[in-house]
Write a protein that binds this DNA or RNA. Structure first.
Lengths: 340, 340
DNA sequence: CTGTTAGCGCTTTCAC
DNA sequence: GTGAAAGCGCTAACAG
């Protein structure tokens, strides 16, 4: 392997000059620079990033913690993170948590071990130790950004949407269509994001006089199967059927959709159905799914941007930065026909 | 930052002993080991991986090149790669090629730069320079494994399925149902994997006397939209409608499905539809999609296993290792009714 | 089993 | 503008 020494010898300069030429070319006289570049060319020299990173004490690598990489909701976010990272000379170390948040702390160590310069988490767990209720994060924490989820206990730079109001608007829309008996298929109960969405749902319901929603709320884990199962529970319940069902994500809505149709009921004829996220498949359902769009690519971009800000020691507020969501009206929802 | 020296001093031993205790504990006397571990504990020492990697000349990191991370077909493969990697002390550096194979060479350099120990590519492009037609790979290449795709020009360790026979079996199944006018929506024409699949399609058609399939073959790029567009072209064509359509992947089949239903035609009543891959959504279509299952998790596992073999200098044949596929019969295909 | 020693390849003062 | 020299923190001979 040719090293910086070989290049130096070949160009007849010192290793320091080679190093400078490569990292700060403008600090080197043009003739010297040319000599060095030619020697680099000729020897096929490629800098050893390991040595460089070691010396510079940085990796130009950012860890991305993904709760479940097979959940297609995350893929656009990851794509944008990767893209912005790439454009700024950073690489992504991908960690699939496989929905095991207890492994988070293990990955928090990656920065201490110098495997990465910072951590972006798409999940709800903070990969560092902290005392609940603290007003601010430990100043010794490495650059850290949360995406979509957040931990209410401690303020951390977060990029997400306004889940409460997004859910509220979704349910308000169903209400405007005349629905009152609206079931809600929620995600994992311990997820702050889901707490916000259910709060939005409850607010909207309460505004039209439905304050006890207990029998209308079902839980799932964001998977297609969970949607089917929750919908089965709804259809099997002895309570009167809801006229609309709002789901905490599109995958569960698609699972629910299949279940409804399998029972011989129609969407939106018998039941209006609404999802959340606007994943690609939602436009290809039958009927296409009314949903709430999250600007996933934008979320990823902003998240990586904030990470770069932190890495460059620019100020980033320890607060949630909310990006605009959008109601996407398709054909899975319809006005409640009078008398139904 | 506490370094190995601090620990050595605290434990009253040499840095070499600390290093040994941490990497080969069995080579150290128990009493010494205890002293060291206690010092580690007490000082909160975390080894600097950058220094360690630099010294060991390895990163325990493998680059995974993904053509398009938003294509959900890849996510299970990545998940398994990551999982096996993690269990063996490796990390994954994720690169999203965004379908720009020309960037491959840039990433091939990552190993030369010591950013990674090996490369797994899920795409069709080899990220190293090579002369076409060589019998064997350049012995100077770093550990490299291809997944799903392969490059016919040069033999490289590859983990995939038997695309030719899988496609052939799929079409044979449609033929057994009585179909003869079977259209094919292919993926990118320059993909070896697609060349195999179309070969399988043609073989099956030829076996029942259809040797000119030109007007039956359409191209797409594996996306939902491409499926819709290809299907639109089929339906708008002046030729008689096919009674069955085989798609090179499920996403295009789902796109085609929507298009067919939008025209007021029924699947499988008017047109039988068959996909490829068996992604999660396929079971949730209406009707659920008949398809060919690729063992995606297994593919990822085996691929990372082969990478580990290469990294440990075990022999890995420069050949394709084909994993078993499986026909998944659902409701999007039906026997051709006589007289149709 | 343990300590001494010599770097890995690069960057970065600090002189000149 | 350039070179000499001193490490970064760790590991791996080697000797004892």
């Amino acid at each position: 392997m040719t090293s910086i020494k070989d290049v130096a010898r070949l160009a007849g300069v010192s290793t320091a000059t080679v190093s400078r030429t490569l990292s700060k070319p403008d600090k080197v006289a043009e003739t010297t620079r040319n000599k060095v570049m030619q020697a680099v060319e000729q020897s096929g020299y490629v800098a050893n990033t390991l040595a460089r990173n070691f010396r510079r004490r940085r990796t130009n690598t950012v860890v991305v913690l993904v709760p479940d990489i097979t959940n297609s909701f995350f893929s656009n976010i990851i794509q944008s993170i990767e893209s912005v990272a790439h454009d700024n000379g950073y690489r992504i170390l991908l960690v699939d948590m496989q929905n095991k948040p207890e492994r988070a702390l293990e990955y928090g160590e990656l920065v201490a071990q110098r495997q990465a310069d910072g951590i972006i988490s798409l999940g709800k767990t903070i990969p560092f130790k902290y005392r609940a209720g603290r007003k601010s994060i430990d100043p010794k924490w490495p650059p850290f950004v949360m995406v979509c989820e957040y931990d209410g206990m401690i303020p951390v730079p977060t990029v997400c949407i306004d889940n409460l109001n997004a859910a509220r608007e979704a349910v308000d829309y169903l209400i405007a269509l005349g629905h009152r008996r609206i079931a809600y298929i929620n995600g994992p109960e311990n997820s702050p994001l889901c707490l916000d969405r259910i709060k939005g749902y409850r607010q909207a319901m309460k505004a039209v006089g439905v304050s006890n929603t207990r029998s209308l709320v079902f839980n799932g884990d964001f998977s297609l199967d969970a949607g089917r199962e929750a919908m089965t529970a709804i259809l099997n319940s002895e309570d009167p059927l809801p006229t609309a069902v709002f789901c905490a994500n599109d995958a569960m809505a698609i699972g629910a959709l299949q279940c409804i149709k399998a029972r011989g009921l129609s969407v939106p004829g018998d039941i209006s159905l609404m999802g959340f996220d606007d994943i690609k498949f939602s436009a290809y359902c039958d009927p296409p799914l009314t949903t709430v769009r999250q600007p996933r690519n934008r979320i990823g971009e902003v998240a990586m941007q904030r990470m770069l800000d932190l890495l460059h020691e620019r100020h980033v507020p320890n607060a949630r930065e909310m990006l605009p969501h959008e109601l996407v009206l398709r054909q899975s929802t319809a006005a409640l026909v009078a008398g139904e």
